Amino acid sequence: MSKDGSISASVIKRLPRYYRFLGELQKEGLERISSRELSERMKLTASQIRQDLNCFGGFGQQGYGYHVDELRMEIGKILGVDKHFKTILIGAGNLGKAIATHINFETRGCNLIGIFDINPKLTGEVVGNIPIRHTNDIESFCEANSPVVAVLCIPKANTQAIADQLVNLGLKAFWNFSHYDLSIDYENIVVENVHLGDSLLTLTYATNIITSTDTDNSEEIE
């Protein structure tokens, strides 16, 4: 960690990318890599990589570079991958079921232990080996199992109330897929808002720029 105890948000957002790329290097059988080689793969500067990793103490050796397994393990510890935080998912609609089924929570520091939905018709249905419970059971389940993380796949109108309930039950972090920009007036609560629509709009913006440029160039040629 940096000397003043703070790490910039941009550095933190790059850590999962380092972790992912190092995992790919492991699969390739690489034992070590220089910051220059890593920079070429990740399209970052070698200086940027060294600065990012130095925020946490630095892990390379001059003349050797980085040991891939060790660096990935250390970044995993920083990210909390080894913690396996108990996690619950609220909202077992199409999105919730897809996340529960296709996201490997265990390799990302979480252990999904419960799924809840307000629709009684879904109660008892099994998703990813986990039975769906009614939201009325959230309180008793949390008291018995002490989850730390909640994944919210619920309508915007319900998000704040559910979040308030979960915070009061001791949850500390939210992966929020609702359309509500969750802002909770509690200390020590972490929120990661995910707006899939915003991401798609960012893509269409870039696509619009590229296609507009192609059209302009085509007109010039004609």
Rank of each mutant, 00 (worst) to 15 (best):
D214H: 12
Q61W: 02
S39F: 00
S34A: 01
L196E: 06
E143P: 03
M73A: 13
D216L: 15
G91R: 05
L112A: 08
E40Q: 11
L22P: 00
L89S: 09
G124C: 03
F105I: 02
Y186W: 12
F177K: 01
E187A: 08
R133D: 07
C110V: 07
I209F: 04
F105E: 09
I88W: 11
A92H: 04
T213H: 14
E192T: 13
G60N: 12
E31L: 07
D82F: 05
I49P: 08
P16N: 11
T159S: 06
P16D: 08
I210Q: 06
L79M: 07
S35K: 08
V126W: 02
S47G: 14
T87S: 13
Y18P: 06
Q62I: 09
Q48M: 09
F21P: 00
F85W: 11
Q160N: 00
K77W: 02
T87L: 09
A173Q: 13
I130L: 05
G29L: 06
V11T: 15
V191R: 04
K27P: 01
H67Y: 05
H134V: 02
C110E: 15
T45L: 08
F59G: 10
T202E: 14
G96I: 01
L200I: 12
A157F: 02
R32P: 00
L89N: 08
H134Y: 00
Y18V: 12
V68K: 01
T159H: 02
N94M: 09
K156T: 12
I88Y: 05
S34M: 12
I12R: 15
T211G: 03
L152Q: 02
G57H: 06
L79T: 10
S140L: 15
D164T: 05
A100I: 07
G5C: 00
M1S: 13
L196D: 01
G76D: 12
G80C: 08
P120D: 07
